[in-house]
């Protein structure tokens, strides 16, 4: 038909390589480390830095599926309640005589079911928005947790269970090891697999994805179920750290998770952002919080800082997207004119 040749090799460009939001986050981490070690003499030692990860990594597991959910232009605000429910179920079953291993299995199952239910409602009733569905289930799941345990706590787990939250492999916290392993998996899943590509496709243009044979419903269902499952993993770590649980645990975790994802450069309009960004953002927020904790900053200031940081980062990402578009426009014009 034609003899035109089209280039299919891309030259590596340092400029493009460094012009990524992720570098900005790396810079932020470095700056936070610098500030932290200058304001507190207790920050810059191995024990602090590794123990800090134990305090903020539990909820970070939910970041993986939340990235995919937000890339797909959805949101899940029921994850905190899912954590509470699966934790409560695990503890009550164990206290009722179930072996701990099975109780952990039940925890994962409950979490996955909660997520699946969200996804199912969304897929079955397409008119429903994720905000509505997960808002309702957020109240419902926590309500069920309260029904099970009322104002009691449940716990007294076998000693080995505390390994999840407190154990070390060598001198590295177990939670950090697992998180890094899962993070690598999550990055590969989203960036290097067909599944990941399809997640982006759904977020960029759901109609076109459907018309291109992408199983939109199935992928949504999987990702929401994954969110529930990860919430259950968070529940295991959290429960292990507390040694017992109550229906009111993990309150507002969804907010923290969404803040991390948003800071990670995932555009709220869908289709944009990388898993790596969100993972870096976990450490940005985690170490920021920890560092401020080391100088004993009052909790209310922390609230304000996190709130402002969230808005500032989303503003910057928004402006960045707009800026990039404008750049593209002007470039096009030149092309056309020449």
């Amino acid at each position: 038909m034609s003899t035109r040749t089209i280039n299919n090799t891309q030259e590596f460009s340092w400029k493009r390589f460094f012009l990524q939001w992720e570098w900005m986050l790396v810079a932020l981490i470095i700056i936070i480390f610098l500030i932290n070690s200058s304001i507190s003499p207790y920050f810059l030692n191995y024990l602090s830095i590794s123990d800090a990860t134990m305090t903020f990594l539990d909820k970070a597991f939910i970041v993986f599926p939340m990235v995919m959910i937000m890339i797909m232009r959805e949101i899940d605000i029921s994850v905190g309640s899912t954590v509470a429910l699966s934790s409560v179920v695990m503890a009550s079953l164990y206290n009722a005589g179930l072996p701990m291993v099975l109780a952990i299995g039940a925890c994962l199952l409950v979490g996955a079911l909660c997520g699946f239910f969200n996804g199912f409602l969304l897929v079955k009733y397409r008119q429903l928005s994720a905000v509505i569905v997960t808002l309702s289930t957020m109240i419902l799941y926590r309500g069920i947790a309260y029904m099970i345990l009322e104002d009691q706590s449940a716990g007294e787990f076998p000693t080995w269970f505390s390994f999840f939250g407190w154990g070390y492999i060598g001198s590295v916290p177990f939670i950090l090891v697992l998180f890094v392993v899962m993070a690598i998996g999550a990055v590969l899943l989203l960036q290097k697999t067909v599944f990941g590509r399809r997640v982006y496709a759904i977020g960029s243009n759901p109609t076109a994805s459907r018309f291109s044979g992408v199983k939109v419903d199935k992928i949504k269902l999987i990702v929401f179920t994954l969110a529930g499952l990860m919430a259950a993993i968070t529940a295991i770590f959290l429960t292990s750290r507390m040694g017992s649980t109550r229906p009111n645990v993990a309150n507002m975790y969804e907010l923290d998770v969404i803040a991390m994802v948003a800071l990670g450069g995932i555009s709220t309009a869908g289709g944009k952002g990388k898993m790596l960004g969100a993972i870096l953002a976990v450490f940005v927020i985690g170490y920021l919080q920890y560092g401020l904790g080391l100088i004993n900053i009052p909790a209310q200031m922390l609230l304000i800082i996190i709130g402002v940081l969230l808005i500032a980062s989303v503003t910057v990402t928004n402006l960045r997207v707009k800026g990039k578009l404008q750049k593209k426009k002007s470039k096009k014009k030149v092309k056309k004119a020449s």
Binding site: R197, T207, A208, S209, S212, G271
Partner: peptide, 23 residues
């Protein structure tokens, strides 16, 4: 609205329907 993902590069657009077979 229904076929292309405009912000994506051309190659990704072309391959979208056939991802299973080119993986």
């Amino acid at each position: 609205a229904q076929s292309l993902i405009l912000q994506w590069e051309i190659s990704h657009n072309i391959s979208l329907s056939a991802l299973t077979s080119i993986s």
